[in-house]
């Protein structure tokens, strides 16, 4: 169980870019983290990995994995302390593998760190797990000899070599063709179930979340504005921002060609409005929204939104 408690990430001598974010991921569960670019999704994931760039730090809160505090530990320190592992795959499979090393070398490097006693067949086993055909041959390939989808599978294999409790997937399919995207999403779901591994799936694509995730957290301006199971969130969003995002999805049946949009633009870190950060763009906002703390509004099941005036829809007849 990965639990993130009131996580704050800030630029040294600069603004906070992740503000008071809390969530949990249980084994075998996929949490979709949704938000526009710049909302702090990737920073959250790098903070969980211990891979924040120099000059950006976790300045508050804690990250725990099965009860162990791993907040400020970098990956190699986590290995040294033998605590639980978080592994990560990235958006660009084309540039995420070292161009001058063979797949075997890159895979075995990870195996040696986490599974020093594993034999040479472990690398092959991992490639089989991610459904790479002709694994024995592909082990000797260089990254440039593989397609984008194959490279992303290799990335997943490297991540699995760490035997992670939690896999973070940061927009792993954004750079892939739609058909390949399908296969990779299917693979992630399958591995999550069979290895009983938690997955934090980061995306800006609500369609992907609806297909893949068990639960969803919506991020806006560095904060979570709504958390819910997938069903309730898509059926009845509480937060006006979530509502707006869903309204932006084209509905092929309505025949309405015009796309809905949310007016205005997401605020930049350092220029975030007081009170509810969404209030300047929100059509339900009132005076109380523009200052002071915002209360949580609860919906059915585990649905929570941070909003003064949540959207309450009529129960479907």
């Amino acid at each position: 169980m990965l639990s993130v408690e009131n996580l704050v990430v800030s630029v040294r001598r600069g603004p906070e870019i992740v503000r008071d974010v809390s969530f949990e991921i249980a084994p075998g569960e996929i949490l979709g983290l949704v938000g526009e670019s710049g909302s702090g999704k990737s920073m959250t994931s790098l903070a969980l990995m211990g891979l924040l760039s120099p000059g950006i730090d976790i300045t508050g809160g804690a990250v725990r994995l099965d009860g162990t505090d791993i907040t400020h530990l970098q990956p190699h320190q986590r290995v040294a302390r033998n605590c639980g592992k978080v592994a990560m795959i990235f958006q660009e499979p084309m540039t995420s593998l070292n161009p001058v090393l063979r797949i075997r070398e890159q895979l075995e490097e990870a195996i040696n760190v986490h599974d020093p006693r594993a034999g040479p067949e472990r690398a092959r086993e991992l490639l089989d797990m991610v459904r790479i055909p002709d694994a024995g041959h592909q082990l000797n390939a260089y990254p440039h000899e593989l397609s984008g989808g194959m490279r992303q599978r290799v990335m997943i294999a490297i991540a699995l070599a760490c035997r992670p409790q939690v896999l973070i997937a940061d927009e792993p399919t954004t750079a892939l063709d739609v058909t390949v995207q399908r296969q990779v999403l299917g693979l992630i779901r399958e591995l999550c179930d069979s290895l009983h591994m938690g997955v934090l799936f980061i995306t800006h694509d609500l369609g992907v979340v609806a297909q893949l995730a068990d639960r969803v957290a919506v991020m806006y301006a560095g904060k979570l504005c709504e958390r819910a199971d997938v069903g309730p969130l898509f059926r009845a969003p509480l937060h006006p921002y979530t509502n707006g995002l869903l309204a932006c999805l084209p509905d092929p049946e309505s025949g309405n060609a015009a796309f809905e949009t949310i007016p205005g633009a997401a605020p930049r870190p350092g220029a975030i409005p007081e009170g509810c950060p969404f209030s300047p763009r929100c059509n339900r906002a009132q005076e109380t929204c523009r200052s002071g703390p915002v209360p949580e509004a609860h919906g059915p099941e585990r649905q929570v939104a941070v909003c003064h005036f949540p959207v309450r829809q009529e129960a479907p007849a």
């Binding site: 990995m49 891979l51 970098q74 990956p75 190699h76 986590r78 290995v79 592992k85 592994a87 990560m88 990235f90 660009e92 540039t95 995420s96 593998l97 070292n98 161009p99 490097e109 990870a110 760190v113 986490h114 990335m155 490297i158 991540a159 070599a161 760490c162």
Partner: peptide, 10 residues
């Protein structure tokens, strides 16, 4: 990016 991957391996 691949340096980040290397770090992520631990």
């Amino acid at each position: 990016d691949y340096i980040r991957t290397a770090r992520a391996k631990g």
